[in-house]
């Protein structure tokens, strides 16, 4: 098999995930796109490990071991990320990334930012 095939597929999947991270507004959809990017990296690791295990004489199978580590870290990441998203949704009433700009500079006088922030603050105070 041509080595460029899995490499090109991995690059395309990574850029798909990149588009999803940049363009999505819901936090859980952003987490899905991050999963796509991590899977693209996993495909690269597996393909190059299979190539090196046949091309080189003895390898540590580092690609497959690192793929297992990446899968486990992705599972931990999705657990922590969903817990954070649920906590934000419980406090603010939304999982919308575009409205979570309390620490951003230069958005204090936004046209749509002020009433939604005020409503979110009221809801946070009501739920607290």
């Amino acid at each position: 098999m041509h080595l460029a095939d899995p490499a090109v597929l991995s690059a395309l999947l990574f850029c798909t995930g990149l588009y999803g991270v940049l363009a999505r507004r819901n936090a859980i959809l952003v987490l899905m796109s991050v999963e796509l990017m991590l899977n693209a990296v996993n495909l690269n690791l597996v393909a190059f490990d299979v190539w090196l295990s046949k091309a080189a004489r003895d390898t540590l199978h580092s690609g497959q071991a690192l793929t297992l580590f990446t899968i486990a870290i992705a599972a931990a990441e999705i657990g922590i990320g969903l817990a954070i998203v649920l906590a934000v949704h419980r406090n603010r009433g939304t999982a919308d990334i575009d409205r979570l700009r309390d620490t951003a500079e230069g958005h204090e006088d936004g046209t749509a930012g002020t009433p939604t922030d005020a409503a979110a603050d009221e809801k946070a105070e009501a739920t607290a």
């Binding site: 460029a4 395309l12 850029c15 393909a47 490990d49 199978h61």
Partner: peptide, 30 residues
């Protein structure tokens, strides 16, 4: 941004591994 990154990555990867082949015969690698 995604289209530019995809174009750059695909170009670099295809240019780098144009003559490299994976030998899938023999025992399973994984």
């Amino acid at each position: 941004v995604a289209v530019c990154a995809a174009a750059a990555l695909v170009w670099v990867v295809v240019d780098a591994f144009r003559t490299t082949w994976i030998d899938l015969g023999g025992a399973a690698a994984g």
